[in-house]
Nucleic acid binder design. Structure first.
Lengths: 125, 125
DNA sequence: TCATGTAGTTACTTTAAGGATACTACCATA
DNA sequence: TATGGTAGTATCCTTAAAGTAACTACATGA
């Protein structure tokens, strides 16, 4: 059995598996990894690709993914300076695990909508 | 290309794929689904299995998963009353997609720890 | 009768994630 | 000269998720 549950107070802070999975459970990290699937991208390209993320939040999440070894940050000292982000082999491995989940979610959308409506009708208030 | 990015304000509220993925991106839902892998479990069993979740949060997340069609809630009107939760076929399909991710995370733990230490050493302050 | 277990609900507080806005500093193009 | 693009940082604010604690209501067993 995998150590997913946490059974003492002291375990909670260093439940490693949750810590690794946090690269997926944030609102933006999965999206950033998917955005880098085809080729390395620059900061602005990623931002445009995602659309509704602020610079500050994008920077934070890129740093987090870089820190965990899922992408690299390369500065080309121009001029003009250009910074590009690319998936590492580990990042690509994670991407390959995420893709089935994303495609499946896409297929599930209608079923989930229906299930929600039925639940809300069966459980009013 | 999947509609993961959001490019207008109005799209943001109903980006369906994110809405489905929210069953994975919460702190507890993935853990609950994994907890139900082997057999249906009762409220208290799930709670003991996870360990550090509060009753209130567990209730909320069970309701959310039930609402989206990933698990069923069955009341056996005893006495004593017993409530059991079980994965639906959709819940089980989601579980099968999550398992590779969880096992992989488990394998990655050491690499991630190392990567974090290296990053922190290379980027002090 | 008193403690324990079952499955919750209600009210309040805290925390982390994300958002808004303004700013730097450099460069290119019109 | 001014406008826009590049890649951010700094500061403050809002919100959603989660946590804490107390409570219900019913049942079992000591």
């Amino acid at each position: 059995m995998l150590p997913i549950g946490v059974h003492t107070k002291s375990e909670a802070s260093n439940c490693s598996i949750r810590s690794v999975l946090s690269n997926v459970t944030g609102k933006w990290r999965m999206i950033i990894i998917l955005a880098l699937e085809d080729e390395p991208k620059r900061f602005g390209e990623i931002k445009r690709c995602i659309g509704d993320v602020t610079q500050r939040v994008l920077t934070e999440n890129l740093r987090g993914l870089q820190r965990d070894g899922y992408l690299t940050r390369t500065v080309d000292p121009g001029p003009p300076v250009a910074v590009s982000y690319a998936l590492t082999p580990q990042g690509r491995a994670l991407l390959e695990l995420l893709k089935p989940l994303v495609y499946w979610s896409h297929e599930q959308m209608d079923d989930v909508k229906t299930a929600r409506m039925e639940y809300d009708r069966a459980h009013p208030g």
